[in-house]
């Protein structure tokens, strides 16, 4: 399996996630191909809503930065893992910024999917989603449920499913490797 991890750790977070992700990567590597992007070290700009990716250069973002190296890797993957410390109750802004930039991967055209309007596929196949979350001191079950539900919706728009959610205080890198081996 090809697995891509987008690590949304950022300055001000504990750094625990980076170590956790690296351990998970080491556990997974023997059996799987894993690519990990530590987003805080990359130059990734905000989506500016220009929609060039939909009507000028279909499928290609107009912003030339480090997302260019992430797109092909994501589209080769079977599983896209969003790893992030929770910050103000949601995944980090660094991760959100990169997630916003995934929009060139789908069409502007809208279709009915599960009785709702959603964007049409640009590609035949998309990676499924997974989450690794590091809680804040005040994180509760409601926060986790909100984050999971929003990523389920995100997955629905990307024609895939949220397959796993791992919490760094409850799961080990070994658990992740086990779940993925039995995916």
């Amino acid at each position: 399996m090809i697995i891509t991890i987008l690590d949304g750790s950022m300055q001000g977070s504990s750094g625990e996630m980076i170590a956790f992700v690296e351990k998970a990567e080491a556990r997974l590597q023997p059996k799987h191909t894993v690519r990990c992007f530590h987003l805080q070290n990359l130059n990734i700009r905000h989506c500016n809503g220009c929609w060039d990716c939909w009507w000028k250069t279909p499928g290609l973002c107009a912003i030339k930065d480090d997302m260019e190296s992430i797109y092909p890797v994501v589209m080769q993957s079977d599983l896209l893992v969003f790893a992030s410390p929770l910050m103000a109750g949601f995944t980090s802004s660094v991760l959100k910024r990169a997630s916003d930039r995934l929009i060139p991967l789908i069409h502007p055209y809208v279709i009915l999917n599960q009785g709702e309007c959603h964007h049409k596929k640009r590609y035949d196949k998309y990676p499924d989603f997974a989450l690794i979350l590091e809680r804040e001191p005040d994180t509760d079950d409601e926060d986790i449920a909100i984050v999971k539900d929003i990523y389920r919706r995100f997955a629905l728009n990307f024609h895939c499913s949220l397959k796993h959610t791992w919490l760094t205080h409850m799961h080990s890198p070994q658990d992740i490797a086990h779940d993925i081996h039995h995916f």
Binding site: C47, A88, S93, K96, R97, A98, F154, N157
Partner: peptide, 12 residues
């Protein structure tokens, strides 16, 4: 609404 949530700059 950006990818089913707020834009990254709002989250920031």
């Amino acid at each position: 609404l950006y990818t089913d949530c707020m834009p990254g700059m709002v989250k920031e």
